[in-house]
Design a protein around this nucleic acid. Sequence first.
DNA 1: CTGATATACAACCATTAGGTTTCATATTAG
DNA 2: CTAATATGAAACCTAATGGTTGTATATCAG
Lengths: 115, 115
Amino acid sequence: MVVYQHSDLNLTDDEVDRIFRALADATRRDIMRRALVGEESISDLANGYDMTFAAVQKHITVLEGAGLVTKHRSGRERLIRGNPEAIRKARTLLNTYERIWQGRIDQLDALLTDD
Amino acid sequence: MVVYQHSDLNLTDDEVDRIFRALADATRRDIMRRALVGEESISDLANGYDMTFAAVQKHITVLEGAGLVTKHRSGRERLIRGNPEAIRKARTLLNTYERIWQGRIDQLDALLTDD
DNA sequence: CTGATATACAACCATTAGGTTTCATATTAG
DNA sequence: CTAATATGAAACCTAATGGTTGTATATCAG
């Protein structure tokens, strides 16, 4: 019997919840994207959206709580930097699901070829 | 200048929201996993969790709304089948973010090699 | 020093989410 | 036919989310 052991990502359910939850909002995905392109201050980020500074600040807090971005002080500013490692973890998890499905197909193949 | 055009997934913000939102819950991820391994009825799925049938039914509705699973009638049962295509879309989107970050590195490389 | 800018954070509000219980309907078993 | 099973869906409750305004604090510019 073929066993598909999912790669151990050392992620708790809670951590995975937070990552996907953080990505489930278009504004946060855009902030994430900008923070991956290059560091930006919270004010600069906030200027890009039609909502208050405080609202953007909260979105950044959500991203930070998921480990998707980090804050770095620079004078009176806080620069927001995207963390590709967290993204990679989420992607790896999705790969696992795809392999589970692929596994089902492989088993079907095995049955058909009847080896 | 190198432009990184993200692969067009033909996904609206709303669709992406729903996919990530649906994945942001451990129970739903487990239902998803089981539905990818093989079709199961709603009752069978519900028996695996410490919550009411109606609660599990709602989770399945969320997954279905995101296109992550589909329902197929079989007599009085509804079989839930995982849809790997939706998973693939989400993964591809995360790949895009990783490439954006990688792009930043490439640009830095270009600066350093000064060509 | 003073005023302007950048951030943090609390209190509040409306909507959504995740759960429950209850009832209705469809299908199968006997 | 009748009882049991499988699903659907409404009404309800509580907590979390996503937004607001308002206030406080830190830092920079001149």
